[in-house]
Amino acid sequence: MTVRALRRRAVSALMTGLVAGLCLLAVLPLLFILGDLVAKGASSIDWHFFTRSPAPAGESGGGVANAIAGTGVIVGLAGLIGLPVGIGAGIFLAEYGAGRLGFFVRFVADVMNGTPSIVVGIFAWTFIVKPVGHFSALAGAVALAVLMVPMIARTSEEMVRLVPHSLREAALALGYPRWRTSLRVVVRSALSGIVTGSLVAIARVAGETAPLLFTALGNLNFTTDVSQPMQTLSLQIYVYATGPFDEWHRLAWAAALVLMGLVLVLALFARWVTRERYGAR
């Protein structure tokens, strides 16, 4: 073997090692973050953490019950608003989206997907907080819904498109009207994919903070009244992390661990839903 060939092989091996190293380096922060979350957060998690609202500033003891409930309420409400619109838009894109209107809606969805979430927060503020006159969980939910809709629309579209054409024809040949074919056969067959896409979108917005800063605002007390300001885990982490007290920092890590766990569970559940149907794929 010539020196030249040897050198070429060495370069190839070296570069392979380099990209492997870069890949490792890219994944490393995730491992550190997860490790730190457990190391710094786990010890603060006890029964009170889940059942109590925050103690007054500087005192120890409180929990984040208000924030957990608030996250559930706001994300749930956002899903109620965002899922029907997003899935409906996705069905439109897949079933009737061949023309110009479809192209336009698809383009708009992509533009909205790239819109900074803080800008969506401003939108919800002007749309709801300003006319109503005070901050509210509802405004926060609307902001999160606006973030969800384009994501869900695009994934739903893709999932519906994956359904084989032959199934659609079989239903139509059976005398199904188009709408029934679409709902009972096509969308039904794509359902697990749509659920997955929705779960991913929900997981994404559950961790959002920026659009809630001046919509849901945050609230030290436990509330489920959506017309009032409401705490979420993400807001609480922000306030505690940037605050001056060690006790707060401790709770911030614990809250972050809980939030991360929630997001992880949703992400894994989403994978599981898909795996169930497509098995070996």
Binding site: S166, L167, E169, A170, A173, L174, G175, V185, L191
Partner: peptide, 20 residues
Amino acid sequence: AVQVRRRVGMVFQRPTPFPT
């Protein structure tokens, strides 16, 4: 057309059972 298809059934080249 929908009513026509209810009176004229069809079977395709490949089996197309509804998977769900």
